[in-house]
Computed example of a mutant assay.
Amino acid sequence: MKIGDEIKQEKFETNQQKAVINLIFTHNWFKEEFASFIKEFGITAQQFNVLRILNGQYPNGITTGEIRERMLDKMSDASRLVDRLEKCGKVAKERNKDDRRLVKVVITEKGRDLVERIRAKEVALYNPMNDRLTDEEAAQLSELLDKMRG
């Protein structure tokens, strides 16, 4: 459905304004869709983001500060998210032997298994880009978004 129909607005001041409104609307739509999808796995989208980051670092760990820098949602409390994931056995904290204040977070096998289950289902059933955008269109969209951020 076109953005004008979605928000019941026929006219926009400029194509740039329309694009920004469309981007914000689509972001919120996708965020809600993804939150609904990820809920069945018993974690939040932010927790999945932490697991995804740590899975990319496996078998090495990184600090919560490094996790925070890499997170998609910069407003998330990385420390709190890590604590919750640790309680359910999806991540582990490793203290530095020389400096006990330095803590690295590592994804556990339980966490890696969850990431793989989510990715398998996401690719097969969920990802709305799979049947709506070609690979070339997705690459073009990504390039345009990169260009917009400058």
Rank of each mutant, 00 (worst) to 15 (best):
K2T: 05
D5A: 10
D5Q: 12
E6I: 13
E6R: 12
I7Q: 02
I7H: 00
E10P: 04
E10M: 12
E10K: 10
K11H: 14
T14Q: 04
T14L: 06
N15P: 02
Q17F: 10
Q17G: 09
K18Y: 01
K18H: 10
V20Q: 09
N22R: 15
I24Y: 08
I24H: 06
I24M: 13
F25D: 10
T26G: 09
T26M: 04
N28Y: 13
N28M: 15
N28P: 05
F30H: 06
K31L: 04
K31N: 13
E32K: 08
A35V: 04
A35G: 06
A35W: 02
S36R: 15
S36K: 14
F37K: 06
I38D: 05
I38E: 04
I38N: 05
K39I: 12
K39M: 07
Q46P: 01
Q46M: 10
Q46R: 14
N49Y: 03
N49F: 03
I53V: 10
G56R: 14
Q57T: 09
Y58A: 14
Y58T: 09
N60S: 14
G61K: 01
I62P: 05
I62E: 01
T63C: 05
T64V: 11
T64D: 13
G65P: 09
E66K: 15
I67D: 01
I67V: 02
I67M: 01
R68E: 15
R70D: 09
R70G: 00
L72Y: 11
L72S: 10
K74I: 08
K74L: 09
K74S: 07
K74A: 00
M75S: 15
S76T: 08
S76H: 00
S79Q: 11
S79M: 09
S79P: 04
R80V: 07
R80M: 12
L81A: 11
V82S: 06
V82W: 00
D83I: 12
D83V: 13
R84G: 00
E86D: 13
K87D: 14
K87L: 14
C88D: 11
C88V: 09
G89H: 07
K90Y: 00
K90T: 08
K90I: 01
V91H: 01
V91C: 02
E94Y: 03
E94N: 14
R95G: 03
N96C: 12
N96D: 15
N96F: 06
K97E: 10
D99H: 13
D99C: 04
D99E: 15
R100W: 01
L102E: 15
V103D: 02
V106P: 02
T108G: 03
T108P: 05
E109V: 06
K110G: 08
G111V: 04
G111Y: 07
G111W: 03
D113E: 15
L114E: 01
R117H: 12
R117M: 08
A120M: 08
K121R: 11
E122M: 11
E122A: 10
A124R: 07
N127K: 07
P128F: 01
P128V: 01
T134G: 00
D135P: 05
E137H: 08
A138P: 00
A139D: 13
Q140R: 13
Q140F: 11
L141E: 02
L141H: 04
L144W: 02
L144G: 09
D146A: 08
K147E: 12
M148S: 15
M148Q: 14
G150N: 02
G150L: 05
